[in-house]
Write a protein that binds this DNA or RNA. Structure first.
Length: 516
RNA sequence: GCGGGAGUAGCUCAGUUGGUAGAGCAUUAGCCUUCCAAGCUAAGGGUCGCGGAUUCGAGCUCCGUCUCCCGCUCCA
């Protein structure tokens, strides 16, 4: 099957079986927003629990928090999001290429600057030792003209940027005759501002409401609580703070189903370490996180690291864990060595000391940070695309049949077991109902007596239920039932009273966590 | 945002040169009882993405619009 078809089938399966629905579907949907359905929410919660427990339960030096989505607006100035997420963009209509308007103008100014410098260098060569650069710059007509032009563009540019005057920026591009490097034309669209942060207003508008942002990442909620957690939790470096929560980005292009959404959920852990030890911790977290992914058993070769060669301004090392999606290897998790950038920024913007007194070293410092950041929705998509399979089955009469089966790890499966009477008579439904009412406090159970037993098994396969309990006539006689396994389709007969322990052993998160 | 493709029942689709909407599967109820989907009977479900135009009449023609999919950029 072509990759596109595999992906389409995955999206259709998610919708058809109650995993993921387009948001606001009866109103034609909302672009790049999705809702999780009755099974999707269970799977998502289980993924979150797997992550949370592997962080907070297994590591005594990692604790969790849940910070608010609304935060003080200055936080986003300190983090750099206000500047970085506010790019004025312009398109060239001929090449269809998009540029940052400010970058185009800055590049143009650099060119003029370059021209002046060349002129100066040429003169320098000609006059030799006696060359007076200041005088030359003040008298040479070509340099003067270029300098005047540069000064004018610069003053217009900084004014336009300060006033966020988009039309002004466009006018500069037109007046200075900047052309598209690709098409060489000056056929530009309007300059548009793409603010990647959603904003809203807090307080009643009549009394002067202040503009606040929906957080574009959860990390800052951790950084601004660094002191609170360190002090009240008596945390000693190295230690980590974990958080799961929603984040919002007004993406220009949001696509590929739930891979890139405007509202998404992150699982982030910021690990605070001694300066100088960060690259060592970076390597350790790389390994730890990879192990976490591979423990799900979807095939080690389907994961790889993608080390960044171009680093963000705050990072001194960064890598992605990529998974082989139907549409290629794509990032699921990012691991970044963020230095002390964030805490330092908050220290300077808030005026509060973001330092840690290290009793072992006997000195104070701003800790360095290793961040592990994973998108819940991406992880969800990764799990479903790994688990969803069309399986060829040879039937007894020699023909083949396809079985659609969602091979979710038992712990992640939304429904743990389905209990079904073989036939709808002879009191078998009553026995089955009794078993459900005994087990429903411990596991997500389903009862089903509609249609033939084979069809019921297939229904459970499609939603990923790992175990089916079947009640047959022998049950009434000797109080045993069969467990049918989703992956092998094999059956095993067990005593009814042992069911709870047997299932518990199989679906417990401990069996997953013990692999780490 | 720009270019290309698509939108008819929960799903997969059919619907002739414009004449008032169909199939299979699924769902629900009943019958039958059979350990790996597709036995029988019946029922429910669609203002054909939305809005407008042309026409006596539009699922079909035209315009607009929304959404989804594929490319171009960024990221979790």
């Amino acid at each position: 099957m072509a990759q596109d078809d595999v992906f389409k089938k995955l999206v259709a399966h998610c919708k058809e079986y109650g995993y993921v629905f387009p948001s606001s579907e009866i109103y034609d949907g909302l672009s790049a927003v999705y809702d999780y359905g009755q099974y999707g929410v269970e799977l998502k919660n289980n993924i979150k629990k797997y992550w949370w427990d592997s962080m907070v339960l297994l590591n005594e030096n990692i604790v969790g928090i849940d910070s608010a989505i609304f935060m003080h607006p200055t936080i986003w100035k300190a983090s750099g999001h206000v500047d970085a997420f506010n790019d004025p963009l312009i398109d060239n209509k001929d090449s269809k290429k998009r540029y940052r308007a400010d970058v185009l103008i800055e590049e143009h100014m650099a060119k003029i600057e370059d021209k002046i410098l060349k002129e100066v260098a040429k003169a320098h060569e000609r006059f030799g030792e006696s060359f007076d650069e200041k005088k030359f710059r003040e008298t040479n007509p070509r340099v003067l003209a270029s300098q005047a032009k540069l000064d004018e563009v610069y003053s217009r540019f900084s004014k336009a940027m300060n006033d966020t005057d988009l039309e002004g920026l466009r006018q500069i591009i037109l007046d200075t005759e900047i052309v598209c490097p690709l098409s060489g034309t000056r056929n530009w669209t309007d300059v548009r501002q793409f603010n990647l942060m959603f904003s809203t207003e807090m307080g009643s508008t009549s009394e002067g409401a202040s503009k606040i942002y929906l957080r574009p990442e959860t990390a800052q909620g951790i950084f601004v609580n660094f002191l609170n957690v360190q002090k009240t939790g008596r945390m000693k470096v190295p230690f980590g703070i974990a958080q799961i929560g929603k984040a919002f980005r007004n993406e220009i292009v949001a696509r590929q189903f739930i891979f890139r959404m405007r509202e998404f959920e992150q699982m982030e852990m910021q690990f605070f370490v001694q300066p100088g030890s960060e690259l060592d911790w970076f390597r350790r977290w790389k390994e730890t996180r990879m192990k976490w992914h591979r423990a799900l058993g979807f095939g080690d070769d389907n994961y790889r690291f993608h080390d960044h060669t171009k680093l963000a301004h705050y990072a001194n090392a960064a890598t992605d864990i990529e998974y082989k999606f139907p549409f290629g290897f794509k990032e699921v998790e990012g691991i970044h060595s963020r230095t002390d950038y964030d805490l330092k920024q908050h220290q300077s913007f808030s005026g509060k000391k973001m330092q840690y007194f290290d009793p072992e070293k006997g000195e104070s410092y701003i800790p360095y940070v290793i961040e592990t950041s994973i998108g819940v929705d991406r992880m969800f998509l990764q799990v479903v695309s790994a688990a969803l399979q069309d399986e060829e089955i040879k039937k007894e009469d020699g023909t083949t049949d396809t079985r659609t089966v969602l091979r979710l790890p038992s712990f992640l499966a939304p429904v743990k077991l389905a209990v079904m009477p073989l036939v709808k008579k002879d009191g078998l439904p009553d026995i089955a109902q009794k078993i459900v009412s005994d087990l429903k406090f411990d596991f997500n159970c389903q009862y089903d007596d509609k249609d033939s037993i084979g069809r019921r098994y297939r229904r459970q396969d499609a939603i990923g239920t790992p175990y089916c309990i079947t009640i047959d006539h022998q049950t009434a006689a000797d109080n045993t039932v069969t467990i049918r396994y989703r992956d092998s389709m094999k059956q095993e007969r067990v005593r009814t009273e042992e069911l709870k322990n047997i299932i518990f052993e199989k679906v417990s998160i401990a069996s997953l966590l013990k692999k780490l």
